[in-house]
Design a protein around this nucleic acid. Structure first.
Length: 858
DNA sequence: GTATTGCATGGCT
DNA sequence: TAGCCATGCAATA
């Protein structure tokens, strides 16, 4: 700050009179020393003593590094620490040796903080000490201490510091200083500007991707990403996000992101909102432990998806000790394998290297981690050599994960409690991740408008919330979502990863029945029917099923086939052409076939009686289901599908529970009490095994069904391929062999009923699929259970399987069909079936009568 | 037969 | 294209 009043420079070695003067240090009177330009610059550049006091007494050497420090003036006495044993240490060394206790004789740091008169009032000495770690650190020193990327220090660079974001820093002042600063200092000060958020980034400082703080790689200054939030526990202001920009509207993403990411506003005792950002530029505990890493990449290049998005609620959970400062380190969405029984959490490499102790041996070391309840867990932190790299894992996390009731898709967070350096592991349910419905513009206002207790405030470096679209984009970017590309890969034949993100979780919340209700054949395709144990199966040749809104097939008074579909909004039934494929959400306005009834206000074409007739299953008791006709079956499917639609996409509760084994193991068209072979079967994993000679009703039914299918296929093949098919149809030429098939495990099990030679032909032998024989099913018994993924791999349908060309297509597909029936997830059901069967050439048994319990483990 | 361990693989960024 | 990392899976307990 400068003024045009003529004054004599306060520097006794100068005494230059000048119209223009600038503020220097704060004097004991509370006023500021007025300095001429030259002296002010020297002061601001930290060269004051070197410039003016070089010949003065009071120079002492740092006990550690020997650096000369002037101890005889107010300007520099905050640059050293008095040692208990006598002597001094420069701040750098003091921090290295972790001297926390400031000289009690010292005046509070505010004495040295020009332009920050109120800033220090808000922080007790204790807090300051806890944060800074070594007594008063002049704010103007802090950036150079903490962000200097060079040797001096790693250590220094990891000290936390505090910056006023409320306007305490004089923009002009900084700009002036910047203009005189070394490039390094400019960098540091640019950081100040960024962090303070009050300052617009200049052209040279604007983050190149326009996404301030979002992309590490794009950061012109590494330290911009090197800060991380430190939250003062139990500080009411920590939750007061809005206080941070009390009167100013955030106009710059960078500003906001800095503010959002470093929320630690502190209420001023005088009522004015004075906000602070407490920044820890990196792992303090490592400093304290002398474990500063040579490799600082981890922190600088932490991927967005691992950046902590801790909420106030979580902070409060973590904070049980008011003395502690919480440093969110990173978070990770649990993958299926993380949350699986193996109990290994794969740690992001950079996070592991940045925040966990260094390990040189693969065995690693035990790591104590506290959960939010304060319970202490010990995990093994270790790594595996992986290519030329390492793969870090935390082992033994299962109990902890379970105690937190986390599962795949949820997020685990790692924080550190300071100063004790404890690692704290928290969890966030996927369902707790809010959607991004925010206003188009977020204006942060004062305390009154804020909600301190709002646990939804998320603190994350790099968040952009000023504009809704940007925010959404950012959320999408940051969230480890499975983007379409990746998501689709779930359905790939070979990709067995089950990657779950929130949306997926929701989308998977369909019961098997519901899914079944959504699948139906193209309307113009006429299925063929067969009956197994009184249960009708329909089979669609040469056509894949489609997924759409369930409808009720019918015939209008002209005798033409039509469909009845119910409007999602008004629930009225509308007539549409039989071949219309409707989206899962269909409303009257989409009724392009009958414009008179394309509005919900239009009357329903059906009378109540007609409707009742049309929906006989609606109010009938379950016992009728066994007598269902083809049409009834369709109706039933449709109705169930409608239920599903009501829950489709996202509802999750009640009906929409994740697919349960129970729902999978019943024929979707059957009701409780049904005694067909499907419903007779116990759920997957609970079934008994049947011998090859078993001729129970289930086995015999399946044998019969299988024979029928094979014979039909044989006939077709013979017609098509003639003699050329003879080689691939060897098995078919002895259909009688199937008499001995044990079909309790579905057709796959039927295969297992063949002898070794036959199995070889089928490609089920080890030679064909390279599996070890210990898993061979040929042990006289059949496991009725199945692991679809595994089955998938071993299946004749596998692209890589040599048996694919050996197996006749129909059988192949039939098996695949059966496998898909046992699929654990709807993704498998829909995706794999659709992909594998493909469009055209597919036999699709739409009713999927055979469930997983009819399959075996190969 | 099951659980655990440690490495390999391959999709994805 | 290198590296990360989710997952598979053989070896071992």
């Amino acid at each position: 700050m400068s003024s045009s009043t003529t004054k004599v420079c306060f520097n006794s070695n100068c005494k230059e009179a000048s119209d223009k003067w600038r503020r220097g240090w704060r004097r004991r009177t509370g006023e500021y020393a007025h300095l001429c330009d030259r002296c002010a610059s020297a002061y601001e550049d930290g060269n004051f003593c070197e410039t003016f006091h070089l010949n003065s007494s009071g120079w002492r050497c740092c006990e550690s590094c020997g650096k000369q420090i002037h101890c005889g003036c107010i300007v520099s006495f905050h640059m050293f620490v008095l040692l208990d044993a006598g002597g001094i240490e420069c701040l750098s060394c003091a921090k290295k040796s972790y001297i926390l206790t400031p000289n009690p004789a010292w005046p509070p740091p505010s004495h040295f903080l020009p332009s920050q008169p109120e800033r220090m009032k808000d922080l007790s000495v204790k807090t300051w000490s806890a944060i800074a770690g070594s007594g008063p650190v002049p704010w103007r020193q802090a950036p150079s201490l903490f962000s200097r990327p060079d040797t001096q220090s790693n250590v220094q660079s990891r000290m936390p510091f505090e910056i006023d974001v409320s306007g305490g820093i004089d923009r002009h002042h900084i700009c002036e200083r910047l203009s005189n600063a070394s490039p390094e200092m400019k960098q540091e000060r640019s950081y100040e500007r960024f962090v303070n958020g009050k300052l617009r980034l200049g052209p040279s400082e604007t983050l190149q991707n326009g996404n301030a703080g979002l992309d590490m790689k794009e950061q012109p200054y590494p330290f911009v990403n090197d800060f991380k939030p430190v939250f003062l526990k139990n500080d009411s202001s920590t939750s007061n996000l809005s206080a941070r920009a009390s009167s100013s509207k955030i106009t710059d993403d960078a500003q906001l992101s800095a503010i959002i990411s470093q929320p630690s506003a502190v209420s001023s005792p005088v009522g004015r909102q004075v906000s602070h950002i407490v920044v820890d530029s990196s792992g303090e505990s490592q400093i304290r432990n002398g474990k500063a890493r040579g490799d600082g990449r981890g922190r600088n290049q932490l991927l967005p998806r691992y950046r902590p998005q801790i909420t106030n609620e979580e902070l409060q959970q973590i904070s049980s000790d008011s003395k502690s400062v919480i440093t969110p380190l990173f978070e990770k969405m649990l993958s299926a394998s993380d949350a699986g029984r193996i109990g290994r959490l794969v740690l992001p490499k950079k996070c592991a290297e940045a925040y966990f102790p260094p390990i040189s041996q693969p065995e690693g070391l035990p790591l104590k981690v506290q959960d939010v309840k304060g319970k202490e867990w010990v995990f093994q932190f270790r790594f595996w050599p992986n290519n030329n790299s390492r793969m870090y894992v935390l082992e033994g996390i299962t109990p902890c994960i379970q105690s937190m009731q986390l599962q795949a898709g949820d997020v685990v967070t790692f924080s550190r409690l300071e100063p004790e350096g404890k690692l704290v592991m928290g969890g966030r349910k996927a369902s707790a991740i809010p959607s991004s419905d925010q206003g188009d513009e977020v204006t942060l206002i004062g305390t009154d408008a804020s909600n301190p207790g709002d646990g939804s405030a998320r603190h994350k470096s790099g968040d952009v919330i000023s504009v809704n679209s940007q925010r959404k984009e950012k959320i999408l970017e940051d969230k480890p979502v499975i983007h379409s590309k990746r998501k689709s890969s779930n359905f790939g034949v070979k990709n067995k990863r089950l990657r779950i993100d929130n949306e997926d979780v929701i989308e998977l919340k369909l019961t098997w029945k519901e899914a079944q209700g959504l699948m139906r054949p193209p309307a113009k395709i006429v299925p063929s029917f067969f009956v197994v144990e009184g249960c009708e199966f329909e089979e669609f040749e040469e056509a894949a099923p489609v997924i759409g809104r369930p409808t009720i097939l019918g015939i209008d008074h002209f005798g033409e086939k039509i469909q009845w579909v119910q409007c999602e909004d008004c629930f009225k039934w509308r007539k549409v052409p039989a071949d219309a494929l409707l989206p899962s959400r269909w409303i009257c306005s989409e009724n392009v076939w009958d414009l008179d009834r394309s509005l919900c206000s239009a009357d329903e074409e059906l009378t109540k009686e007609q409707l009742e007739h049309l929906l006989p299953a609606m109010n009938k008791d379950a016992s009728r289901k066994e007598d269902i006709t083809d049409q009834d079956a369709d109706l039933f499917v449709a109705l169930e599908g409608l239920d599903a639609l009501a829950n489709l996409a996202i509802q999750g509760e009640g009906e929409g529970l994740p697919i349960s084994s129970e729902s999978r193991t019943k024929h979707p068209r059957h009701k409780p009490g049904c005694t067909c072979i499907v419903c007779l079967q116990p759920p997957s994993g609970k079934g008994s095994k049947h011998s090859q000679s078993c001729d129970c009703v289930v086995c015999s039914s399946l044998k019969r069904r299988f024979r029928t299918l094979m014979e039909r296929r044989e006939k077709k093949q013979l017609e098509k391929e003639g003699d050329s098919s003879s080689q691939s149809l060897q098995w078919q030429q002895s259909p009688e062999k199937l008499q001995s098939v044990d079909t309790h495990a579905g057709t796959d099990a039927g295969i297992s009923g063949l002898n070794q030679e036959e199995m070889g032909k089928w490609g089920y032998l080890d030679e064909a699929n390279g599996r070890k024989s210990s898993t061979s099913p040929l042990k006289g018994q059949i496991d009725l259970n199945i692991q679809p993924d595994r089955e998938e791999e071993l299946s004749p349908s596998s692209d890589s399987g040599a048996m694919k060309h050996v197996l006749p297509g129909s059988a192949d597909r039939f098996f695949r069909q059966q496998r898909s029936l046992g699929s654990d997830v709807i993704a498998d059901l829909v995706g794999k079936q659709m992909q594998q069967d493909g469009i055209g050439g597919a036999n699709f048994i739409s009713c999927m009568a055979l469930d997983s319990s009819h399959q075996k483990t190969v």
